[in-house]
Design a protein around this nucleic acid. Structure first.
Length: 488
RNA sequence: CGGAGCGUGGCGCAGUCCGGUAGCGCACUGCAAUGGGGUUGCAGGGGUCGCAGGUUCAAAUCCUGUCGCUCCGACCA
């Protein structure tokens, strides 16, 4: 076990906090609930961001930017939507500070704004206020816009990456001429989220539909990807909403069809946030610290030279030259740790930081024409000939990627259970795990289960088989098969 | 906002009950050796004890007030 970090089996949240700060992913900001994303953490975010940005551009979306400040009046226009956010909006009321002899710097009471401004908790309202200007005819549709921005939600309880007052995300906002097209967009994006999670973050996810109580306020339907963390709790890792005509109606956004009919525009919105980093930490981390999947790792290979003096140092340097040149060609992200910490210290340090592959190079290896490789996903060191290490490494990185996914999937499979007994559900939830079972489709059932067990319906999975199922709570015929779990 | 706990060098803590002018581990700086799983030795630097009052000859310690943070609940991506 790594020195100084709590055992994740015993103190998962202590482990999480330590790992995030000690691996230098992030640090606490001065304002409660805010977070500084440090360079190592930000590189991870940039890698995730670049992958998804590429995906949406491939599928015809473009980036834009909408303002941070939103007039308060915009929120009155979509009552359902604001219900969901009213309790967590930061409001700008003044525009100036001034020096006060007694109190130091104070808010200038004379600078009070006539109309207060809301710092965006999400941007549907501003976006749709603009879409009203931009959309007249079916020829203006679809609009497929995304933005990478920060948003602020005044949360009561915060945790680095998982829930912070301010966080970074992408929010897509699309406008369509038909309901079918909007629905297709919603699901297409969800599929991209699934790919992002599974193929890049190496996290298996359930895709499905949120229940009424869990859906986004203002949406017709909310779809999600849900993942299992190593403490067997669920994490919602991304959502995609079919907004129907709700926002178009709130903002009066209509268009003329090919047949010269006036109709309201159909909308979607979808987002993934820096929470994904929390997901990576919580899904893959182990007692030594982080384990970052190679495809998103800021550093894929860390090289630890084993040297005694300057002569050996330059020997290693020369020895590494062709390897490093090879990395440049294959695009492997590497780092050589020349600090004079002891090798053992470096091993632990880089394991904590989750680097997928470590290469050790010392006198013994140079004599044999080898390097030592140690994979972060397993507890083994292997000697490799220097000759073919350049071809091998991308393959090994790919194997690590697959192995992290396989481990996460195996873990999820071990900890998901099907049952039609409520007692059993309570026991499983209590011990930790997901429960797949029938649900009668009633709000009050969901609420009752939540109150009694703290578990919520994470989603109605696309592959549900409700036939012949009964509701785990009421015993009535099931309307849906659902997944219950305690969630972050 | 309810319940609990904590504020003492950068981090983690002891000291507080029973007042006497601040200490430990890690980290940091320098030198030397060491170097294949958190390496030693020696020598250093750094704290108005969260803040504001009060009691006292004397306050990290006692009293009052205040601010902040963490954890558990209600809310949430």
């Amino acid at each position: 076990m790594s020195k100084g970090i709590p055992n994740p089996e015993k103190d998962f949240s202590g482990w999480y906090k330590q790992v995030v700060t000690r691996a230098e992913l992030a640090d606490y900001g001065p304002v409660k609930g805010t977070m500084v994303i440090r360079p190592y953490g930000f590189q991870l975010w940039e890698n995730i961001k670049n992958i998804f940005d590429h995906m949406i551009k491939e599928s015809g979306h473009t980036n834009a930017y909408f303002p941070l400040l939103i007039p308060k009046s915009f929120f009155a226009q979509e009552a359902k939507h604001i219900e969901g956010f009213a309790k967590e909006c930061a409001v700008v009321t003044h525009t100036r500070l001034k020096a006060d002899e007694e109190k130091g710097i104070i808010v200038d009471p004379e600078s009070r704004l006539e109309e207060e401004l809301i710092i965006r908790p999400t941007s549907e309202t501003v976006v749709w206020s603009m879409y009203k200007k931009w959309i007249q005819s079916y020829r203006d549709l679809p609009i497929l816009i995304n933005q990478w921005v920060n948003v602020v939600r005044w949360e009561m309880r915060t945790r680095l990456f998982l829930r912070t007052t301010e966080f970074l995300w992408q929010e897509g906002h699309t406008a369509h001429a038909t309901e079918e097209e909007a629905q297709k967009e919603t699901l297409d994006i969800l599929e991209l989220y699934r790919q992002l999670a599974e193929d890049y973050l190496a996290i298996p996810v359930f895709t499905g539909l949120k229940t009424e109580s869990e859906k986004f306020a203002g949406a017709e339907k909310t779809y999600c990807i849900e993942a299992m963390m190593r403490d067997k709790r669920a994490l919602q890792a991304g959502t995609s909403h079919n907004l129907g005509q709700n926002f178009a109606k709130a903002f009066g956004v209509t268009f003329q069809t090919e047949h010269n009919q006036e109709e309201f525009v159909w909308a979607t919105s979808w987002g993934v946030s820096t929470r994904l980093i929390g997901a990576v930490i919580l899904a893959h981390g182990d007692k030594k610290g982080l384990r970052i999947p190679p495809r998103i790792a800021p550093v894929q290979v860390v090289i630890v030279p084993i040297i005694r003096d300057n002569d050996q140092r330059s020997d290693v340097q020369k020895y590494l030259e062709p390897i490093i040149n090879g990395f440049a060609e294959t695009g492997v992200r590497y780092h050589i740790d020349w600090t004079d910490n002891s090798p053992g210290f470096k091993f632990n340090e880089w394991e904590m930081k989750g680097v997928p592959l470590r290469m050790e190079v010392g006198p013994r290896d140079m004599a044999e024409g080898n390097v030592i490789l140690a994979r972060r996903d397993m507890d083994k060191k292997i000697s490799f000939s220097c000759e073919n290490v350049n071809e091998k490494i991308p393959t090994i990185l790919e194997k690590i990627q697959q192995s992290l996914y396989a481990q996460a999937l195996a873990f999820r499979n071990e900890n998901i259970h099907t049952t039609n007994s409520y007692d059993e559900l309570k026991q499983i939830i209590n011990e930790g795990g997901f429960v797949r079972c029938g649900w009668d489709g009633l709000d009050k059932t969901e609420t009752a289960v939540k109150e009694e067990t703290k578990a919520t319906i994470r989603c109605i999975p696309f592959d549900e088989q409700p036939k012949d199922l009964t509701c785990v709570y009421s015993g009535k015929p099931a309307k849906h098969e659902v997944i219950y779990a305690k969630a972050y």
